[in-house]
Design a protein around this nucleic acid. Structure first.
Lengths: 133, 133
DNA sequence: TTCCATGCAAACGGTTTGCAATTCT
DNA sequence: AGAATTGCAAACCGTTTGCATGGAA
């Protein structure tokens, strides 16, 4: 490996991720970028997404049982997912209390405990409105 | 679909999941059960695991970027994973404060917020001992 | 001129599924 | 008998990779 190079494909992929109104997956990015670079390949989209992640320009958010989503917001944050429509929104980070972490440490008998992967489910406002019209 | 039937395969798969010292994946269960039922197929293992989950006898825990793990502990609990060896342990459930949930609701503009997928990383005692011998 | 990035297609790992044969109840 | 379950193999889906070509520096 050497230093990353600037290419048309990379710029287009980054722009696509940034332009999305929902966190997009690789296929969505591929289809979006294809409008501008019709012969780009899915493989390239995956490689570019990985290198953008490595450079810290986007974040990969891999979900169990579905394609990874890509997030142009690289600040520390957590996610909330709508149970009804599946949409994922960003939420500012939440810090758990030291007492709670200590409780977990005792219960698990682990030597060290770090908060990770805190995620919420919920129902977004539009879906709630649909359910109670 | 009708009512579930009791079969040799199902009993063996359930026993295998219960006998594991770490949360096993489908392949591990397959290899374990193969000792007893040599011609069982991986497909059957998957189908049996799914039906045991549906019957509430085990829990499927699907992780991003790896095979699903199966947990004989069906009580409500969360997981802590050792950063070093990957082992996953169970921890009693942790309840987040109402204030924190309300904070998330405000920040996300969601109509309803439910706690989900709280998971910890850490270093288990054996791994910590290895690092500081 | 160097060597990273690309397009293509094949391979991959985990999981699911269509089918005919089997086995519970 | 009748329906659920099995074994087998092929299909599936998201993702990665080998290779020859193209393009940024």
């Amino acid at each position: 490996m050497g230093r990353p190079r600037q290419t048309r494909q990379k710029a287009a992929v980054l722009a696509a991720v940034r332009s999305a109104s929902r966190h997009p997956d690789a296929r969505w990015v591929y289809e979006k970028v294809s409008q501008e670079i019709p012969n780009i390949s899915l493989g390239t989209v995956y490689r570019v997404l990985a290198s953008l992640s490595a450079e810290g320009l986007i974040r990969e958010y891999s979900q169990a049982g579905g394609p990874s989503l890509y997030d142009p917001n690289v600040e520390d944050h957590i996610h909330i997912r709508c149970r009804v429509c599946g949409r994922i929104s960003d939420v500012p980070p939440v810090t758990l209390s030291d007492e709670l972490l200590e409780e977990v440490r005792r219960a698990s008998a682990f030597a060290k405990v770090e908060q990770a992967r805190l995620e919420f489910d919920g129902v977004c406002a539009p879906c709630a409105a649909k359910d109670h019209p």
